[in-house]
């Protein structure tokens, strides 16, 4: 039964990936003109690269993608390259490979967003629960109100305010980048310190903006959970308030939160693009932004395919673990 369920989810994932890759393949080919020609001529117009370089690149791409071959043939080649994890070359910084560009950005984005998401989730969920619970200390209402208020401010706005005060006016934290300028990462204390130093403001702006959303979600869920019959019976059983709160209230109300967390974690590769842009943080989002600016066509395409696949994968993994979190799910989805 569980196997049936997993198989169905797996097929759905394959379908999503198939569609994403196909659309990503088809879109540029449906545009009028030769994509490489147009990109390269733009590049030339902007005065980048010498004529010799461009000639070599066009040749490389023509051969690589076989753009003169039938479309179906191209399509299969595209899949073949994907399986070899080959996303082609970057136009803007040839001969860097698109795969390498993504890999270079990935740890930054995962680190920043992973950390910020987990912190906002934990703090927000707890705070939301404490605001919703009538027997909790009223002291929680203060921070609760602040966080709820901040949640209605877009995170990039918070990022800009933080940047202005902490980096420009008071100069406590650096204004951008992932590491002190000119250094490259290595396994030493200076690198760790540099990463933390540069990560503080971007992380803080995401945490400040997102915590409230988690708190709102949890508050709503807990309020409705507390109105359910099983809470009334838990009280009737003479259970301690703490147990009712944690086990009967929070644990039931947590399920939608965990789903949302898993979904958010699935999304984090796509990052908080605007935060990365504001702080010139060298993650995937910033690279995507740069690639769009530079009309680095293949990097954009590569990042989009990468994001689609990782999202489909994350959703599949979520589907796998969900029945373990909520015993009702496997039955319901099966039935």
């Amino acid at each position: 039964m569980y196997f049936d369920y997993v198989l169905r989810r797996f097929l759905v994932m394959l379908l999503v990936i198939f569609l994403a890759v196909t659309i990503n393949f088809a879109l540029p080919r449906m545009m009028p003109g030769d994509p490489i020609e147009s990109q390269l001529s733009q590049l030339l117009a902007q005065g980048g690269g010498s004529v010799g370089d461009v000639g070599a690149m066009v040749a490389a791409y023509r051969e690589k993608f076989g753009l003169d071959q039938p479309v179906l043939h191209q399509y299969f080649n595209y899949w073949g390259a994907l399986f070899r994890l080959d996303l082609g070359f970057s136009l803007a910084s040839y001969p860097e490979r698109v795969g390498a560009a993504i890999l270079a950005g990935l740890p930054w984005t995962l680190g920043l967003l992973g950390f910020a998401t987990l912190v906002s989730f934990t703090v927000g969920t707890l705070l939301g629960g404490l605001i919703a619970w009538p027997k909790a200390s009223r002291l929680w209402r203060g921070p609760g109100a602040v966080v709820l208020l901040l949640s209605s401010v877009p995170y990039f706005l918070i990022g800009m305010v933080l940047l202005y005060f902490f980096a420009v006016v008071w100069r406590i934290f650096p204004a951008g980048g992932g590491l002190p300028y000119g250094t490259s990462p290595s396994f030493d204390w200076a690198t760790v310190k540099g990463i933390l130093w540069h990560g503080t403001l971007p992380a803080a702006s995401i945490i400040l903006a997102e915590t409230g959303a988690w708190a709102v979600g949890m508050r709503g869920m807990l309020v409705s959970t507390l109105g359910e019959d099983h809470i009334a019976l838990a009280e009737a059983k003479g259970l301690k308030d703490k147990r009712i709160f944690r086990r009967y209230g929070m644990r039931s109300a947590m399920l939608p939160q965990l789903t949302k967390l898993a979904l958010t974690l699935g999304h984090i590769v796509s990052g908080a693009i605007l935060v990365e842009v504001i702080f010139s943080y060298p993650g995937i989002g910033f690279r995507l932004y740069q690639a769009i600016q530079a009309k680095d066509y293949f990097v954009v395409q590569g990042i989009v395919v990468f994001l689609s696949i990782s999202l489909a994968l994350a959703t599949f993994i979520l589907d796998l673990i969900y029945p373990l979190i909520d015993p009702r799910i496997s039955a319901r989805r099966r039935g």
Binding site: A234, L239, K240, R247, P327
Partner: peptide, 18 residues
């Protein structure tokens, strides 16, 4: 009246615990 995400043993057992 029973909590949907807890086993019966947990929901009965915590009567004794508390």
């Amino acid at each position: 009246s029973l909590n949907p995400v807890l086993r019966i043993s947990e929901q009965m057992g915590d009567i004794f615990d508390d």
